[in-house]
Design a protein around this nucleic acid. Structure first.
Lengths: 151, 151
DNA sequence: TCGAACATCTTAGCTGCTAAGACAATTCCT
DNA sequence: AGGAATTGTCTTAGCAGCTAAGATGTTCGA
């Protein structure tokens, strides 16, 4: 084990904390621009990032909301055109939440600007350095996921 | 300008997105464990990270809440012992929100575990690599801050 | 000293959440 | 096959927290 100077660790901790706070703010602002509450946008994000079709109940689990609240979330997202309710043909009790990709065209600029920021950052590094960074990000996400699960 | 393969950019974008989602979840879970709502925890974090004394009004600006909502936030944080209201002696209209450090001792383990995760990640890198990562984080936070401000 | 400006608090009305139960579809058990 | 239990979603009552507007208390400038 390589051991770091305490000051360096403190700096890294500060970056993390700052990044977290900025993430929350960014999330709030994006939701606002899309005409959604933070909760609705969070659910929409879960629906977009879900692997395979997502049911209303599963969305409740993932988001931590009650099933009743999820009904409201889907109502609002559907009214705004971001998703569609589709009854599962194999089990007609289930409601599948289908994201309508076309609705995101209007907000493409948000996404593009975010990606432009990323490119702007990565531009400062050469190929070898990018490999280090990618290794870091991969590990960071994996470790963070474990931490979140058992918190 | 060094240009990346599109696939690499896609992977980096995915890490970002995943990290954002995990951050939101983590924030929610920490708040829960501290017996606070996400809003209250967010305000407490702003109070902790503020430079210099923070007034109620300033907290409203930073959090994006109305002044009325902030009154409620401070009420709850005060009742839970996380902060104290102190009237500004120089301008007695103002209410300064003073964080009571002792209250965090109980949640020290949360913070320690988060830092342990960070160390666990950083352990996989040597001193040169850490320098690259730090440069990346610093730039990332700065760029992200600009992006958040004009979103 | 008095009115305007300022900082926070209070309140009415609204939105969205939870918990509990209703309703509809499916699965299980005999 | 047929009734009971289970499952998935929606509905509703009650409640918590937010906004907007105005009340209250403080400071500042002429």
């Amino acid at each position: 084990m390589f051991d770091m100077e305490p000051e360096a660790l403190e700096r890294f901790t500060w970056y993390m904390r700052e990044h977290s706070a900025l993430t929350i703010m960014f999330h709030t602002k994006v939701a606002e621009q899309m005409g959604l509450s933070a909760t609705d946008e969070k659910c929409l994000d879960l629906a977009i990032r879900a692997e395979g079709p997502l049911t209303a109940g599963r969305l409740a689990e993932l988001s931590g909301l009650s099933t009743g609240a999820v009904t409201g979330v889907i109502d609002r997202l559907e009214r705004a055109g971001y998703v569609r309710r589709v009854r599962d043909p194999h089990d007609r009790r289930k409601v599948l939440v289908e994201v309508t990709p076309a609705e995101f065209v209007k907000f493409g600029h948000l996404f593009e600007k975010a990606q432009a920021s990323l490119v702007e950052v990565l531009d400062h590094f050469d190929a070898d350095e990018l490999q280090v960074i990618e290794r870091y990000l991969k590990l960071q996400v994996e470790t963070f996921r474990k931490r979140v699960i058992d918190t």
